[in-house]
């Protein structure tokens, strides 16, 4: 094998077969779009996790809604489940338009535009987030093998989005970011439903949407109360409510 290095076959032959065993990605085009949107949803989830400004958070949340509703529509088209169109439109109107609008109004009223305080520093939060993604991949591995839907690989992402939403609620002090974390968590659940089973029945979905809306209103009312009581939205202040001090 002492041959000349350059006089051998041109580049590109025999891509080291045998060293890699994962399957090639000649996926269906819809599955590709689906997984790309899943990646974007994950990206926005991480964006919310690290975003310090309240407005930035709301915009990212709205974008997540856009990707979610697009994904729902595409899944509905591929799977032939037309009720998914309705939930897509519902997502668009509720999570992209209405809720961000309410939050905007809330922030303007309460005049809280400064940067959001975090409990854990941001690089550390990112690392925990990455660990959560790996964990949810590990967790959903059995489901992935059972299912035969084209969207099955996005289940891990959906679970990760749920967990990141919860992480966001844990690491942030501000009440507004907590509600956004809650809504992101709900987004993850919705995403899981579309990718694992091609969506929940329409009735359930309508119910959930209504719940979210009502939750948002209740949160809003609570904000006002917290704000008037403590003159801040930092939930650390709630620690003062405990007995024994």
């Amino acid at each position: 094998m002492e041959g000349n290095f350059w006089s051998l076959a041109p580049w590109g032959r025999g891509l080291g077969e045998g060293y890699f065993q994962y399957s090639d990605m000649n996926l269906h085009i819809a599955a590709q779009i689906n997984s790309f949107l899943a990646a974007l949803v994950l990206l926005t989830a991480f964006g919310m996790l690290v975003q310090k400004r309240v407005y930035g958070l709301i915009h990212l949340f709205a974008w997540q809604g856009v990707f979610l509703s697009l994904n729902t529509a595409i899944v509905g088209f591929v799977a032939g489940k037309h009720h998914l169109y309705i939930s897509s439109v519902l997502t668009l109107s509720l999570k992209v338009v209405l809720l961000p609008y309410i939050l905007h109004v809330l922030i303007n009223r309460l005049r809280i535009r400064k940067e959001v305080e975090t409990i854990v520093n941001i690089p550390m939060t990112m690392m925990i987030g990455i660990a959560l993604v790996i964990f949810s991949y590990h967790l959903t591995a059995p489901v992935r093998e059972l299912s035969n839907l084209v969207t099955r690989s996005t289940l891990a992402v959906a679970l990760a989005v749920v967990m990141i939403g919860l992480l966001m609620m844990i690491t942030r002090k501000h009440a507004v970011t907590q509600i956004i974390g809650f809504l992101a968590l709900e987004n993850g659940l919705f995403f899981a439903a579309t990718s694992a089973t091609y969506g929940m029945p329409l009735v359930v979905e309508l119910g959930v949407a209504l719940d979210v809306l009502i939750a948002a209103f209740i949160f809003g009312i609570f904000f006002f109360h917290i704000h008037t009581t403590f003159d801040t939205l930092d939930v650390d202040q709630m620690a003062r409510l405990k007995e024994g001090d």
């Binding site: 094998m1 002492e2 290095f5 051998l8 580049w11 025999g14 891509l15 080291g16 060293y19």
Partner: peptide, 18 residues
């Protein structure tokens, strides 16, 4: 066999393409 497959000048741990 693979690492020095192309003489003493080239270090190719797995395959030249890699």
């Amino acid at each position: 066999q693979t690492a020095g497959a192309f003489g003493w000048m080239w270090l190719t741990p797995v395959a030249r393409e890699h």
